[in-house]
Simulated scan of single mutants.
Amino acid sequence: MKSQGNTILVTGGGSGIGEALAHRFHDAGNTVIVAGRRQDALDKAIEGRANMHALTLDVESAEGVADFAKRLLAAHPALNVVINNAGIMRFEDVTKSRDLGDAEATVTTNLLGPIRIIDALIDHLAAQPDPAIVNVTSGLAFVPLVPTPTYNATKAAIHSYTVALREALRGKVEVIELAPPGVQTDLTPGQATRPGYQPLGEFVDEVASLLAQDPTPQEILVERVRPLRFAEADGQFNERLAALNEMAAKARAAQP
């Protein structure tokens, strides 16, 4: 992936990992468009930054994604990189029958959302110089956090989708997977200060270093996520499943 001179879309760019990546890409000399549901958060993310732009996006609606793609390409015809980062994470109790609203919203946002964005933009991207798609998954795609089963499943699905997409688009569009560990953001209540999670700045520094490699790795894996990514290959899946869930439970319990 080219490091500068791109026009980059970052979904979920109004906060957390998306905002931090958008700022880093902008600082490196790229035009950046952040997209998300909340105009106020997007405006704050681009404040004081030339060549950063904001567009509202509702990934829960197929019609909304189609409308977004038209607005995006009309305003930014040089778009050549898409970062599919928008996502939600909800805790669920699967031990009893429940309202499936959270599970359904998670599937729509985390799985259908990136698929819809890619479908809406693929013809345009394939015709651009140096095109790339970066799909943000999670270490939980490989070792699940028990209280977030649907989130884990959507990230595992996007991992598989990304592998297939990479092969389908080989020679046409570069396809990269970014799999974060637990990072200190507002993805879930209290997570921004949760002990044991990687500080956001440290995570983005490491990601930027990996993206700068030539050639760019197909999978962007910071050191903290590698034990999860390779747990099964290392023959350590059960041990790392237990350790991950014990650490996460203790970290949540330590917060007021």
Rank of each mutant, 00 (worst) to 15 (best):
I117N: 11
T185Y: 03
E174Q: 14
R229F: 09
M89N: 13
T193Q: 10
N245G: 06
D234F: 07
P181G: 07
R252D: 10
A156M: 07
R116Y: 03
R116C: 01
R24E: 04
L211M: 13
Q4W: 10
A208Q: 02
R38C: 04
A243H: 12
P77Q: 10
F237E: 04
I46W: 05
L57K: 14
L121S: 03
R49K: 11
S97D: 14
V134M: 01
G64S: 06
K2S: 10
P217N: 05
S209M: 09
A233W: 06
N30D: 06
G16C: 01
P129Q: 10
R37W: 01
A157G: 15
A41Y: 01
E47H: 14
S97K: 14
N84R: 05
P217T: 07
G201F: 07
Y151W: 08
S15L: 06
G64R: 00
A120D: 02
N110Y: 13
L111S: 12
I117S: 11
D93A: 10
A78T: 09
A28L: 02
T185W: 00
T150C: 08
G87I: 07
A78G: 09
A164F: 07
A127M: 08
V107H: 11
G16R: 03
E19R: 15
L125Y: 05
N245A: 08
F142L: 03
G182I: 04
M247F: 11
F25W: 07
E47Q: 15
T95I: 06
E219K: 15
N51P: 00
I158Y: 09
G139R: 05
L111W: 08
G113L: 11
I220M: 06
A231W: 08
N135S: 06
N84T: 09
K250N: 12
P180W: 04
V81W: 07
K172L: 04
V94S: 14
E206D: 14
A231F: 11
D67E: 13
T31G: 03
V207C: 01
V107A: 15
V107Q: 08
A248V: 11
N30V: 06
V225C: 05
A74K: 10
A243K: 15
P256V: 06
A132W: 00
R224N: 12
F91Q: 09
E167H: 14
N110A: 04
P199V: 04
I118G: 06
Y151S: 07
V207I: 07
L200A: 01
R49S: 04
L165V: 03
E246A: 15
G190E: 03
E60K: 15
D214E: 13
A141V: 06
E104P: 13
P199K: 10
H53N: 00
A41C: 02
A86S: 15
I176M: 04
V146M: 05
T154L: 10
F230E: 06
H26W: 15
I8W: 09
A86H: 15
A54I: 00
N80V: 02
E19G: 01
A86G: 13
I118V: 12
E219P: 00
P180S: 08
A78L: 08
N245W: 11
E223C: 03
K2L: 08
A20H: 00
E60L: 15
P131F: 10
G190T: 09
Q4M: 08
M1V: 06
D214M: 08
A120T: 00
N6Y: 10
H124I: 00
P149Q: 06
A233C: 01
H159V: 13
A242C: 07
G18A: 02
A249V: 03
N238P: 05
L140S: 14
